[in-house]
């Protein structure tokens, strides 16, 4: 197993509130799907947002400890946040297309990072939409506003937008929770296909989703990472009582 991220003594605070407590992950696997589960407010989103440093944008938030990607601590002074975020795509709970055309949504990232040639952009747009299994549905309306497609399509558009900058890691924060069951399945299938190229970390509230769609699972509770194991092991033979209570539905 190849490792994508190592996390060492990670603590996150909002003002005085201790949101993540001493998180330790020796090896978060590359080119695989890692699911993060846990009750509401336990710190899953916070964890995800520290990986691409989106939490830098929250006033009063503070991070200590290390998140090591490709041998570099991403909280190191030298690290460039914009470059880091280019490497790590993110898909949010609510689809958030920009008020622009479908084409411009996908092209937004590549343009930021210096792609200007029309033919090159066309290519990126097409391949990203294909990877996001959306190409066939929108190829005739690329100039249309991104709001004019369905919620499920918008979410796949956001995935396409994220992979258009060619990231290594894809973070998904409850990316299917605002969608209907069919769209949800589509996105899960999409994740299965994408995992051959990207390291995917997905937060989910749906334990069945974690069980059927992921390779590894981490269980968070009150800011602590209680358990991190292969999905199979965590669901069939949990190493911690609290994990067991949670997955058998006794709390949370």
């Amino acid at each position: 197993m190849e490792k994508a991220i190592r996390i060492d003594g990670l603590n996150v605070y909002y003002e005085t509130f201790h949101a993540l407590k001493n998180i330790q992950i020796e090896a978060l696997p590359a080119r695989a799907i890692t699911a993060l589960i846990g009750p509401s407010g336990c710190g899953k989103s916070t964890f995800l947002r520290t990986i691409n440093r989106m939490n830098d944008l929250v006033p009063g938030s503070r991070v200590d400890g290390k998140i090591i990607i490709n041998g570099v601590d991403i909280y190191d002074q030298q690290v460039d946040v914009e470059a880091l975020r280019k490497k790590i795509g993110m898909v949010f709970q609510q689809p958030n297309p920009f008020p622009k055309s479908i084409y411009d949504n996908i092209a937004f990232g590549p343009r930021l990072h210096g792609v200007t040639k029309k033919s090159e952009l066309d290519e990126i747009v097409e391949s990203s939409l294909r990877q996001a299994a959306l190409w066939d549905e929108v190829k005739d309306k690329l100039k249309k506003m991104a709001y004019d497609i369905s919620g499920g399509q918008q979410q796949r558009l956001c995935i396409a937008r994220a992979i258009a900058v060619n990231p290594e890691i894809l973070l998904m924060d409850e990316a299917t929770s605002a969608l209907d069951p069919i769209s949800t399945i589509k996105i899960e299938e999409l994740a299965q296909e994408l995992k051959s190229k990207y390291t995917i970390i997905m937060v989910t509230h749906n334990m069945h989703q974690a069980a059927r769609a992921s390779d590894h699972t981490g269980f968070f509770l009150n800011g602590e990472l209680v358990e991190f194991a292969t999905t199979e092991q965590l669901f069939s033979n949990p190493g911690d009582e609290r994990t067991e209570s949670y997955i058998t539905g006794r709390f949370g």
Partner: peptide, 8 residues
């Protein structure tokens, strides 16, 4: 390079 310019 490009990124430096953007940050500047």
């Amino acid at each position: 390079m490009n990124l430096k310019i953007r940050r500047a």
